[in-house]
Design a protein around this nucleic acid. Structure first.
Lengths: 149, 149
DNA sequence: GCTACACTTGCACGATGACGCAAACAAGCA
DNA sequence: TGCTTGTTTGCGTCATCGTGCAAGTGTAGC
């Protein structure tokens, strides 16, 4: 997870938007959306700290929301790949996917590191890093970017 | 950041909710919420791949949304600690906080690893891991958890 | 088969957020 | 000073989401 090969940074943001990088595959809105809600985060933390499969009733005891809300939230977290659902009899157990999560977060950190600065000297960029040319826009960006929409 | 000391897992989810762990401080809803929107994620990826400070107009060229929307999104990302804003003349430059982000993600991965299984033998838990007792609820959870609300 | 329990789902409602437009604000330049 | 350019902010609209209640589904025990 400590690969040091760096990509060449795109010359312009527009080119950057088209360029494919490892970070693209790891920036999944659904993943972050699942963790964007305080209640869901509370349930997830509860499950993580308990470090074992817990039933919906168990987790519902952690916070002051309706039972159905907990059921829905756990389903959302499972759908996003954060939890593993497991039906046992009439109970539904959810457990944190510790390994997957850890790997995913580290992979994202690696991908971000790979994008990091040091691979795009201002002169080669043609876009003027602010240190050398603070006020020269790299290209005449259209005032209305949605022109072709 | 690779500490191996594990906490004792709480016996019940309710206790887990009260227990303080490193993961609690790292699960910030605002952080994940900032990354939960596809457009914002696109702008962030664009900035990350460009690997240099970009002005609002630059980034706006990456996607088909209004200029004001881009301005707002970048502000949101900066407020969440993902970007660094820097005013230079009449341009506003935003740059990805590569180091902070990478450290933050790795810290979260470490905290999740710390919570991981292996620290709470089912017998000591008293809550019945499903492998040994699939159908015995650890405690009679209240049907309406918001009783004291 | 009946009942109890655990959980899911449908529905309505309120809150939040993303979006586009237009106006305002700020900085550089002739 | 007035104009142009870059950016932010106010406002209205629409879609999405979180929530609670109630009903429905599925499983286990009698």
């Amino acid at each position: 997870m400590t690969q040091t090969s760096k990509h060449r940074a795109p010359a312009t943001p527009r080119a950057a938007a088209r360029a494919r990088r490892p970070v693209d595959g790891l920036l999944d809105p659904a993943f972050f959306k699942a963790l964007a809600d305080p209640t869901r985060l509370l349930l997830f933390a509860c499950l993580a700290k308990c470090a074992r499969p817990c039933s919906v009733s168990d987790v519902a005891a952690c916070c002051n929301v309706d039972f159905s809300v907990v059921s829905r939230h756990l389903g959302t977290l499972a759908a996003a790949g954060l939890l593993t659902p497991e039906k046992r009899g009439k109970h539904m157990f959810y457990s944190v996917r510790f390994n997957d999560l850890s790997l995913r977060l580290r992979a994202l950190a690696d991908a971000i590191d790979q994008c990091g600065p040091g691979c795009c000297p201002p002169a080669a960029c043609g876009c003027g890093a602010p240190e050398s040319a603070p006020d020269r826009p790299p290209e005449p960006a259209a005032r209305r970017p949605r022109a072709h929409a």
